[in-house]
Design a protein around this nucleic acid. Structure first.
Lengths: 185, 185
DNA sequence: ACCCGATGTAGACAGCGTCTACAGAAGTTT
DNA sequence: AAACTTCTGTAGACGCTGTCTACATCGGGT
């Protein structure tokens, strides 16, 4: 296995184990057993290495779409929504990295392709379900974007800690149920 | 005006003008005309200073709720939703700071109070509107959280750049319209 | 008049990303 | 086979960051 791939693997493990702050070039290099300057032989800088990590994150997220349970399009869509939230809650650091513009090279073609693929497959799932909103004549891509944003905000706010507030303590699933009801009910 | 307040003001201007990366203790100190160690006389560290800045951000966001146009509760709710999105798009750096756990002290009581106030007033607005979902018997606080998350995700994804993708270029307003239709339609 | 806490300054330290100089290994060309 | 070039890794340096400490200064209370 080449050093480049080991750096990506090590960075992924470090990310999952220690959080996004621990993913430093020097820390990755040390964890991978190379000198602090070695990563720059394989990546132009930190952003490029983290982009490779984030790209794998999008790929993992997309892989969950391959085996969605459910017989009807509607069931598969709700399964996809659950899988998005599950991914974020199970891999909070990776999820954060994937949407941190300052840590990642937004112009990386592999990264944006992986991100687009995630959205595109989601849009396909949405288009297959005759939602109430779709019947109103709205652009289906727009509906998909809106629902995706709702999911994303749910994951983000939950990880942020704002939805576990004081007097009322909902579970992520219950909030998701309300969201899905709004769009699909 | 005390040095402490000037530091907060300078940091806010720096944040709005140069982005979240530019908000460094040393940069703020220089822009405020004091030595690099002076901020530590007024704040325990960077997180505490940025928490004060973010707290003002939540206060500004809340202030927009004071003068919402619209005669009916429903109109005021949609106005509040628009104002949330407008705030995020008009103050992207502040919006990012407000939800960056790593930059801010989550245990700061003033900060969490300001954040809670924003959500609470929103929940009040939601409770005043007889949405289709509310009629289904769901917890109104849960509905408010779900709608807030949808708004938040819309703002976040738009600033991230993911919603302005390739073949279809929606405006934030059109996406918001779909979201509002899902919850209120 | 004395003291002491509050405020600000300057210097130091470790850690960070990145650049450069250098060394060896590997492969290619002549 | 020899020479040269490219790839890969190391070590050190630089400027930046947040934070800590030592020192000066100033203002009010005893």
């Amino acid at each position: 296995m080449g050093t480049r791939q080991r750096l990506i693997d090590t960075a992924s493990e470090l990310l999952a184990g220690e959080g996004v702050d621990a993913v430093t070039l020097r820390g990755i290099a040390k964890a991978a057993g190379v000198s602090h300057g070695a990563p720059l032989r394989h990546f132009s800088g930190r952003a490029e290495l983290l982009s490779a990590v984030a790209t794998r994150g999008y790929a993992d997220l997309l892989a969950r779409r391959e085996t969605l349970p459910g017989n009807s399009p509607r069931e598969r869509l709700t399964a996809a929504c659950h899988s998005y939230l599950d991914f974020a809650l199970a891999n909070p650091a990776m999820f954060e990295l994937m949407f941190r513009r300052d840590l990642v090279d937004a112009d990386d073609p592999a990264l944006s392709a992986a991100a687009s693929a995630v959205f595109d497959t989601f849009a396909v799932l949405v288009a297959a379900v005759p939602t109430r909103i779709a019947r109103s004549g709205a652009d289906l891509r727009l509906v998909a974007a809106s629902l995706w944003a709702a999911l994303h905000g749910l994951a983000q706010l939950w990880l942020w800690g704002g939805l576990a507030g004081a007097s009322f303590a909902p579970s992520p699933e219950s909030a998701l149920a309300v969201t899905l009801d709004a769009y699909l009910g």
